[in-house]
Design a binder for these strands. Structure first.
Lengths: 197, 197
DNA sequence: GTCTATAGGACGATAGAC
DNA sequence: GTCTATCGTCCTATAGAC
């Protein structure tokens, strides 16, 4: 049906939001290398050239998705912790343990987003990946920010920062693989008890 | 050169070893969705049909790579800890902390293999991935085995098992992204100090 | 055990009409 | 803002000769 007739014409901003939402879901499922522009277009009720008109190229679409995630995370965290810059550094008064608890609670409510990052984090280890630079920078900034906030907690703040990041990522993978059998928030609390002791 | 002339004819077993080695490297770089049979064939000095003669299909090639890894890991761990079954359960006398130290030391010496697993672990979260079942089983077994070995260490052995697995995976990702700036073995030792305290 | 030839698609991207 | 048409390339897999 509708073959040969014009499809719904949407304002660019709204269409863009839709494209990013659909792409987010598909990358979480298949990663960037497994993503096809055809699938994105289908999911939006567009043809591929119609899609490319909005995003330029497949690489730029990926970066648009990541930019949008950063903006969303900034919104959520500022609402929770008060105004500060994002992504990173964190405001100096923040308590690391409470910050992490907030992050884990938020992540537990949006498995799709967590999976998006889990898949891209691994895929982008290859230097040729279009999000390689993004994730290198992201890790540098996260490590620096968490290290600063961990400053008072012991004699190796950067190691504590690394442990916090590693545990969150690792527990999330376990949870994504077995959501029914894994209580992400509870396991984090138990782990935090050991880390911050 | 050599266009149209017969290529080197190898015994099947040797050719298979070569194919698995080349594939391991390529999957570590691009994941399974990003892997092309053409690249594997080129890396082996074969045509694509020549390659398919040995491995049957792309899916079966992936599973062959994983089987080969399990066999190699079994060899190495038995050499280090004495004879036991693999993959899992572990022999009951093993000390969890010493086992982990051995695993981390071994992993630190073979970043390519660690990356292979990091990439596939994330990619295979999707139910349609050809290694999905493999990694579900792997996580179940690892959790069960580590829980058993952690039995005497506290009142929540399964949580300690999860923390150990999560920390190893998470630290490895950080290390792969910044090998120069991250001392995997040292960071693990510091983390283990906190976990096993 | 390896090849050539080919089937039969899917891919990302561009040109140009409307 | 969306389309049709098309380019050139890549993909996995099969058939059959040697």
């Amino acid at each position: 049906m509708n073959r040969g007739t014009a499809r719904a014409r949407k304002p660019a901003a709204e269409r863009r939001r839709q494209i990013i939402e659909v792409t987010t879901r598909l990358i979480a499922e298949r990663g960037f290398w497994g993503l096809s522009m055809q699938d994105v277009a289908d999911g939006c009720g567009l043809t591929v050239p119609g899609l490319l008109h909005h995003v330029g190229s497949k690489d730029r679409l990926l970066l648009a998705v990541l930019d949008h995630r950063d903006a969303e995370d900034a919104r959520a965290l500022v609402a929770e912790l008060g105004p500060f810059e994002w992504p990173y550094p964190l405001p100096p008064g923040v308590d690391l343990r409470r910050l992490c608890a907030a992050l884990v609670r938020r992540n537990a409510a949006q498995p799709e987003i967590v999976r998006l990052f889990a898949v891209l984090e691994a895929e982008s280890l290859a230097p040729g990946h279009p999000a390689h630079a993004y994730f290198v920078t992201r890790q540098e900034r996260a490590l620096a920010a968490f290290t600063t906030v961990a400053g008072g907690s012991g004699d190796r703040p950067s190691s504590l920062a690394r442990q916090v990041m590693a545990l969150m990522d690792g527990l999330q993978i376990q949870w994504l693989r077995d959501p029914e059998g894994t209580d992400l928030v509870a396991e984090w609390e138990i782990a935090a008890e050991a880390l911050f002791r």
